[in-house]
């Protein structure tokens, strides 16, 4: 399959080509899906190295699933987000267990919030967003990141999270409200809004 035509081809078609042994399809899928898996994992975990491991592991599972993939049964991207979600959940739980065992560990949120104190300039605004996301309950964070940062539709998120569309809407709405409150609270704490701080 020539490289310049792969942009118009669906993930499913590329995966079928990969399963037939076409190396170009492997390259196209890697270029297309790794940034998405990595971006989502990084937002969920707040740790670049861990996110890279998760992205690689999720892609490895995709390669292994390719031969038995049944067209029309699942969207490749949705399937991948689901695998990333599960891998991140496992890591977050392991992290919680480690924290419970060693109480003197500094929470990672504190590192990210240092950016807020430095002043809400461009890069720091992103750090503040990541810090605020890290404070959300896990399911709300998943829903908000998938909806507003990864650009998935609510029905797609419902498949990824294995819940109903209404539950997705509820999670994203609550997550957004909580996020806005956290960010507003930070700004007030740091004296960005009004003079009362």
């Amino acid at each position: 399959m020539p490289r310049d035509t792969t942009d118009e081809v669906s993930d499913e078609v590329l995966l079928a080509a990969y399963a037939r042994g076409e190396a170009a399809a492997a390259r196209a899928l890697t270029a297309r899906l790794v940034p998405r898996a990595l971006g989502y994992a990084a937002r969920m975990l707040g740790d670049r190295a861990e996110a890279e491991d998760v992205a690689q592991e999720a892609m490895l599972r995709l390669w292994r699933a390719a031969a038995g993939w049944r067209t029309g049964e699942a969207q490749v991207a949705t399937w991948l987000y689901r695998v990333v979600t599960n891998l991140c959940t496992d890591r977050l739980r392991a992290r919680q267990r480690r924290r419970a065992e060693t109480l003197d560990d500094a929470p990672e949120v504190a590192d990210a919030s240092a950016g807020v104190e430095a002043g809400m300039i461009e890069a720091d605004r992103m750090a503040a967003l990541d810090a605020a996301l890290a404070e959300l309950p896990e399911r709300q964070r998943q829903a908000v990141v998938l909806r507003h940062l990864e650009g998935l539709s609510n029905p797609e998120i419902a498949v990824v999270m294995d819940i109903g569309v209404e539950a997705v809407e509820s999670l994203t709405a609550r997550g957004k409200r909580a996020l806005a409150a956290i960010l507003a609270g930070r700004r007030e704490e740091l004296g960005y809004d009004g003079d009362e701080g």
Binding site: Y18, A26, R27, T30, V34, M59, L60, W63, R64
Partner: peptide
């Protein structure tokens, strides 16, 4: 993604490819 990550994923892909 870093070039190193992309290379690792592609190496996995080719190793696992039917």
């Amino acid at each position: 993604p870093s070039d190193a990550l992309m290379a690792r994923v592609l190496a996995d892909a080719l190793a696992e490819q039917p």
